[in-house]
Design a protein around this nucleic acid. Structure first.
Lengths: 212, 212
DNA sequence: GGCGTAATTAATGAATCGTTTAATTAAAAA
DNA sequence: TTTTTAATTAAACGATTCATTAATTACGCC
């Protein structure tokens, strides 16, 4: 399979950064589909078109590659999400930017689910403390602002409301592979825009003051 | 680690079904946390308190154990869900029974996510064809009934509505480990009941006819 | 143009994986 | 009670895992 007939030695006309980046890209794609222990170094190296030993040369081992991947790909997106969480003042813009980002980086929700929701790893704590807790608080604050402005009903529980909005915004992209088939939709930019519109409308109408 | 000082031979006063069931239970717990390739036979056997070779005696190997697990634990719950999908006529009852079941079997959403959403396995096809597609259709049918009865707005898209309701019903239990910490909730029976109430109310109010 | 260093590979080692076999004990059958 | 069968284990096997080392090639600097 990985029958590389290449002799050893530095490759000609190729910046060394290329191998490193190829490994990171391959690892990102594979770790989005299967968890750490289930992905082998040879799989990664094969996909990147380099020798497995390169993983140790560049990253000091499998775990080092994983950490570098999180540092280089996961963390920037998380920082971006955190930025969105803090600076947006409109609830709709918040959800929109959120959904936009998840839709255009399909590997991201996968890795979140794998690493944060079900992986009992140190990254979960990091994610919760540094991001989820803050985003949750921001979301509840935004909701409370809307509530005090009279656009949401007075007795609305901020935690339940925040969890609802998160559910509407995130679930379709988490369940993407199945949802696309079951509901015959394709999660492109068109769908993303429509979904943001649909979800926020449903939320606002469902959570506003109403007589019953 | 698995330093069992027990001599070989049949155990006294112990029905053989016990070992088999212990293996299935151990496998269920472990496969809910880590995927197939990441769980070793020795881990399962240790947790079950038997020798790894028992897996081959009872199930003809690791894959056989996995299939037996799906057959014995996953499939019955899926059949129960399918029953709920077909016989309930009220949308609220449907969601209620659904949520109830997910809450009381925490390993089930985990396995669904792992096996169906992200595992590119044969079980995904089975799940989609035999269950998800049918449940999706049933849900859309129920929603359409409500729509024609005037309890939901006339121009509501059944697919989007169904996906919304699913999001509200499922996401909290999929994201359970994080949601519990971020929002300071505990997903016991009390929460379950309140969530069903909250989610269906949000959905009905958000999707009913309203002037804007 | 020669030389040191950086990049890359093949070859190898130690650990662990799933599996198989043979031995051993208890239960069931005769 | 004796014999057969079922259940269980330890031990060993080959395959595959991650990691290491030594050898090889190209690049950059003087």
């Amino acid at each position: 399979m990985s029958q590389s007939i290449r002799r050893p030695g530095r490759r000609s006309g190729r910046p060394p950064e290329e191998s490193r980046q190829a490994l990171l890209d391959a690892a990102r794609d594979l770790f989005a589909r299967r968890e750490f222990a289930a992905v082998s170094l040879r799989q990664i190296a094969d996909r990147a078109g380099v020798n497995p030993a390169m993983v140790h040369y560049h990253f000091q081992g499998k775990e080092g590659l994983y950490l570098a991947l999180l540092e280089g790909q996961f963390m920037p997106l998380m920082a971006r999400l955190e930025q969105i969480s803090s600076e947006r003042s409109s609830l709709t813009d918040f959800v929109g930017a959120y959904v936009q980002m998840l839709a255009s980086n399909p590997w991201f929700p996968n890795l979140i689910v794998r690493e944060v929701l079900y992986g009992e790893t140190a990254l979960r704590e990091l994610f919760i403390e540094r991001f989820a807790a803050r985003a949750g608080a921001t979301l509840q604050r935004l909701i409370d602002t809307e509530r005090q402005a009279g656009r949401l009903r007075a007795n609305l529980d901020p935690a339940s409301a925040a969890l609802s909005l998160l559910s509407l915004a995130l679930f379709p992209f988490i369940a993407r592979p199945v949802a696309e088939r079951v509901f015959g939709i394709e999660m492109d930019e068109t769908f993303t825009a429509r979904w943001v519109e649909h979800a926020t409308r449903l939320f606002y109408e469902g959570a506003k003051e109403h007589d019953r």
